[in-house]
């Protein structure tokens, strides 16, 4: 187990009590796998991902435990976490243009990750940045290294971000919606590149997305988040084949519908996800859940094992009466 998250809560201070955005979530990430976190906008995916590297907003309050390679990371002093960022944990983000500094050449920003950890300096670092650009399949890497971010394409920028994240040799890559800003062809190339690099560099990848298509493509295991909590977690194939949590099932249906008729952006899930501070009692999903019953409105469903997966639901899809009686 390269990463173990236990009872992680991330909240924001408000007068009259903290607002929880992530509520006691737990999960493990295995070495070398692609672990996908999926959920609607605002479900807490980015907060979860960023907190692993200690990059959650300064205004947030965190509790629980994040153990990376047997070391506790949560609420460590920033100066200590800094030594791990880039060196052991690499990060890429949704908006490559905004995530790159507009006034420095791309190559310089990549080389900086080596310099930050004293791995190389000066011309040697610059040379290795060009090599790294080549490794992420950028044609004419020497030219791109001297270009400014606004002078290269969106796909190139994200490749440059990957080069920056991986140049200091981390074993874990956290990718927060790396393909969302890109068009379909570039998106496929990017996923392919990540898979290749994963093999070459023995990477563990945590991929955050709200795109079921991405999940089907790359996921070994998935974590489905809804309104700050774990809905379902487990083997990707098992979940994709027979989603047991009503929310996962709804996500899959809407993905299938939009794939069959891409023009018709149908949403199989009625209503919208609740925002921060307006989470309902009981199961957070109950106002939108077709299977909701009275107990769902009052009692938070505990995470329970069901075959290859674990899920938090009182009345899973296709559950028999025995299961319901047990609940």
């Amino acid at each position: 187990m390269i990463l173990s998250v236990r009872d992680l809560s991330i909240g924001f201070r408000r007068i009259g009590g903290d607002l929880p955005a992530v509520d006691k979530i737990s999960f493990d990430v295995r070495e070398g796998e692609t672990f996908v976190i999926i959920g609607e906008s605002g479900s807490g995916k980015s907060l979860t991902g960023m907190s692993i590297a200690g990059l959650q907003p300064a205004t947030s309050v965190t509790s629980g435990s994040i153990r990376f390679k047997e070391r506790e990371l949560l609420n460590r002093p920033d100066a200590e976490l800094r030594r791990m960022r880039g060196r052991e944990i690499g990060l890429i983000y949704q908006d490559p243009l905004g995530s790159l500094n507009p006034v420095w050449p791309v190559g310089d920003q990549i080389a900086e990750a080596l310099r930050a950890h004293g791995l190389a300096s000066g011309a040697a670092a610059a040379r290795r940045a060009v090599e790294m650009l080549d490794r992420v399949r950028i044609p004419d890497p020497a030219r791109v290294a001297t270009a400014y971010p606004h002078e290269i394409s969106g796909g190139m920028r994200q490749r440059a971000m990957i080069a920056m994240a991986l140049i200091a040799g981390p074993s874990l890559l956290i990718a927060d919606e790396p393909t969302t800003a890109l068009d379909v062809t570039i998106k496929a190339q990017m996923l392919e590149l990540l898979a290749e690099l994963q093999r070459e560099m023995a990477l563990t990848i945590i991929l955050i997305t709200h795109d079921m298509g991405v999940v089907a493509e790359v996921a070994d295991r998935i974590l489905v988040m809804y309104a700050g909590r774990v809905a379902e977690i487990g083997d990707a194939d098992a979940i994709m084949r027979t989603p047991s949590h009503p929310y996962t099932a709804a996500l899959m249906t809407s993905a299938m519908i939009s794939e069959a008729e891409p023009k018709q952006q149908l949403n199989a899930i009625v209503g919208v996800a609740p925002g921060l501070g307006s989470f309902p009692d009981g199961c957070h999903f109950h106002p939108r859940c077709p299977l909701a019953q009275d107990d769902c409105r009052s009692f938070v469903p505990p995470l329970r094992r069901l075959g290859d997966v674990a899920l938090a639901c009182h009345h899973p899809v296709g559950s028999d009466t025995a299961l319901m009686a047990e609940a």
Partner: peptide
């Protein structure tokens, strides 16, 4: 508050370099 500051932190840069260089 710009995103590139998060990127700079994400690669392990210290507050001084982030302030003066970025």
């Amino acid at each position: 508050s710009r995103l590139y500051v998060r990127t700079a932190r994400g690669k392990g840069l210290g507050p001084r370099v982030i302030l003066y260089k970025h």
